[in-house]
Amino acid sequence: MSAPVADAAPPHTLLRPAIALPFLLVALLWGSTWYVITTQIGDVPAPWAVTYRFMLATPAMFALAAWRAKVLAMPRRAHMLALAIGLFQFCGNFNLVYLSELHLTSGIVALLIGMMLVPNAIFGRFLLGQPITARFVLGSAIALAGIAALLVNEAREAPLGGNIPLGTVLALLAMLSASFANVIQARPSGKDVPLLTLLAWSMLYGTGLDAALAFVLTGPPVMPDQSIFWAGTAWLALAGSVGTFPIYYDLVRKLGAGRAAYNGVLVIVIAMAVSTVLEGYRWSPLAVAGGALAMVGLLVALRGRQMAVKAGS
């Protein structure tokens, strides 16, 4: 089977305003969300903060699905898939991310989540039969070395009370949870229904799971009265969860999954920049070296993944 037309798009396609502007918009929105999450945790238990986010996002996603996809009904097997995506993406991933940011700066968490390409490739190999290139393995190893240096720097600079190993484990588990959701939604039962419809139902199931988890772990809802909390919740729900998905998946159709994935590298750069300005992240020589290695490794790995998609299509 030949490669999709989108994956054969010429490299200069990314420079066209019709592609570059949405590409930058998605990166800016997603890059900003990592810091905004820090305004959601502390006074409010993380599971309830996640629940409030998706209680607001879910009706908006259903409205978007009704407008764009024109259909909200799905077959039973698609609902089972939506339940799994809700569990791993909108419950597991987000709860673990929020908890990890209690211990790590937002930029470091974004960088760890950005390594999702590695489990994506592994899950894709075993669940979807997609190949892994040697270039991808090399890039992943370089990026992991860079992340290790950043975590060492984080441990040296962390304020009292932060648990770097725990934060790292939580972020890595979040990455694995989201990666599994990313891969399973590419299965045939997900392709049989409009993407926005699948996302809306997945978000609904995830919200229910979030509320149940929050109640079990922390008790009755905690309703903060700070305006910054609710403003952040609205931004995360509408801009970070609803507004970006249609734009990003349109880029996937136009550029192919390989080139569209470069957006994730730009998201990390923006998240680290925001963390530097607003969280006072200190760029020691070790951190600079680690950040450079991570970026180089991710670019090499992404290039390798793109080549694998072409070769194996």
Rank of each mutant, 00 (worst) to 15 (best):
279 E>T: 13
15 L>K: 02
297 G>Y: 12
124 G>P: 07
98 Y>D: 11
98 Y>F: 15
61 M>H: 01
58 T>H: 03
53 R>A: 07
179 S>Y: 00
53 R>M: 09
230 W>T: 09
4 P>A: 11
85 I>T: 05
295 M>F: 15
179 S>I: 02
290 G>D: 06
86 G>R: 05
133 T>E: 14
223 M>P: 04
313 S>I: 00
173 L>Q: 03
161 G>M: 14
152 V>D: 11
242 V>S: 01
47 P>K: 07
121 A>R: 10
146 G>Y: 04
171 A>W: 04
55 M>L: 15
184 I>R: 05
54 F>A: 10
103 H>R: 03
34 W>N: 13
77 R>F: 02
5 V>P: 08
62 F>T: 01
302 L>D: 11
28 L>G: 08
244 T>W: 04
140 S>V: 06
200 A>R: 10
12 H>I: 00
119 P>C: 02
100 S>K: 03
39 T>E: 12
40 Q>L: 15
280 G>N: 11
28 L>M: 10
311 A>E: 15
5 V>M: 14
22 P>E: 02
11 P>C: 04
287 A>P: 01
69 A>K: 04
103 H>N: 06
83 L>A: 15
149 A>K: 03
99 L>W: 09
134 A>D: 04
184 I>A: 04
292 A>T: 15
61 M>N: 01
243 G>N: 08
280 G>L: 09
210 D>M: 14
68 R>W: 01
79 H>Q: 10
150 L>D: 02
115 M>K: 03
119 P>M: 07
109 V>F: 02
48 W>M: 02
143 A>M: 04
286 L>M: 15
163 N>C: 05
232 G>T: 09
254 K>R: 15
123 F>T: 07
296 V>G: 05
138 L>S: 09
310 K>W: 01
240 G>D: 06
16 R>W: 08
180 F>R: 06
97 V>P: 02
115 M>G: 13
157 E>C: 09
119 P>V: 08
305 R>G: 09
27 A>L: 12
102 L>F: 02
146 G>W: 03
42 G>N: 05
137 V>M: 12
24 L>Y: 00
134 A>N: 04
211 A>F: 11
14 L>W: 14
48 W>C: 03
2 S>C: 08
287 A>D: 02
117 L>K: 01
102 L>V: 01
222 V>A: 14
296 V>F: 05
194 P>W: 01
53 R>E: 11
15 L>Q: 02
96 L>T: 06
4 P>Y: 00
110 A>T: 07
30 W>K: 12
68 R>F: 00
50 V>R: 07
21 L>K: 02
94 F>G: 00
197 T>C: 01
152 V>C: 02
171 A>K: 07
158 A>L: 14
63 A>V: 01
301 A>C: 03
89 Q>D: 10
282 R>S: 13
193 V>K: 07
220 P>T: 09
204 L>R: 13
183 V>N: 07
246 P>K: 00
152 V>W: 12
7 D>I: 01
29 L>E: 00
99 L>Q: 15
24 L>N: 04
28 L>R: 07
82 A>C: 07
75 P>C: 08
163 N>P: 03
286 L>G: 10
50 V>I: 12
235 W>P: 05
116 M>D: 05
309 V>G: 06
63 A>L: 14
299 L>H: 05
222 V>Q: 15
243 G>H: 10
22 P>A: 07
25 L>V: 11
219 G>L: 06
